[in-house]
Amino acid sequence: MLKDITLGQFFPGDSILHRTDPRFKVLILLVFIVAVIAAKSAFAFLAVGVLTVTLVAVSHIPVRIVLKNLKALIFILIFTGILNIFFYQGENVVFEWKFITVYREGLIYAAFMVLRLVCLVCGSFVLLTYTTSPLDMTDALESLLSPLKKIKLPVHEFAMMLTIALRFIPTLVEETDKIMSAQKARGADMESGGLLKRAKALIPILIPLFVSSFRRADELAEAMECRCYHGGEGRTRMKVMKCRVSDWVFLIIMLGICVGVFFVNGYGVRV
């Protein structure tokens, strides 16, 4: 049951997106997000849509998986759509009934908004979460944020915390499963009763979980100290990130598309 939870969702593979330097992927994603948010006209959305589809195709991630992720967001998408249809004030009335007025601009705006969300979700999933392992991702963040060290921000520590947190999610899930089984074996009933009773039934699971998390944290800290961990200063890496020409090309193409989106914003149907 709990094992079905997927986190991180990294999908191993060997596509262009997998091979791109994770630091560049973060930058490319930022540019992509700017382009998607900046899009205002039909042509701009066409460009952004084609771009998203291309990214999905190039990532070699099964379309089924990407759609499954959208399905999880379906409620938000519908909600956004409906809100925008009914609350957008425009000039051309399409439909009027009592206090409800639907404008043509509202319909268009709603469509754009939903499209924008779909593009954002699909794009960022295939650009980053699906094609970058969590470790690469935190390494990339550390490297990109390293200028902030100048103003004494603990960038390395922050990245390390993130790495450790990600690393321990599966362990924690497994542990929860085990403790749940153990308490069920002692007759704990977690499936029936009202809200209060169910909340109370969680105590025998949460307390051991907390205790063992603290114990684990202690043990990990000790183990790291035993291996002379002393923060990021002078630390070298096993996997050194190297940017290649293709990474730069990718980024420049992306920047070009982004500028292009601003350029075509003036053409086609727009709000």
Binding site: S181, A182, A185, R186, G187, D189, V211
Partner: peptide, 20 residues
């Protein structure tokens, strides 16, 4: 099934971590 669990007691590996 919970009746079965009362008849068949199961002590897991390292059960000391289930105390609360």
């Amino acid at each position: 099934i919970s009746k079965v669990r009362f008849k068949v007691g199961l002590v897991f590996q390292y059960p000391e971590y289930q105390l609360f």
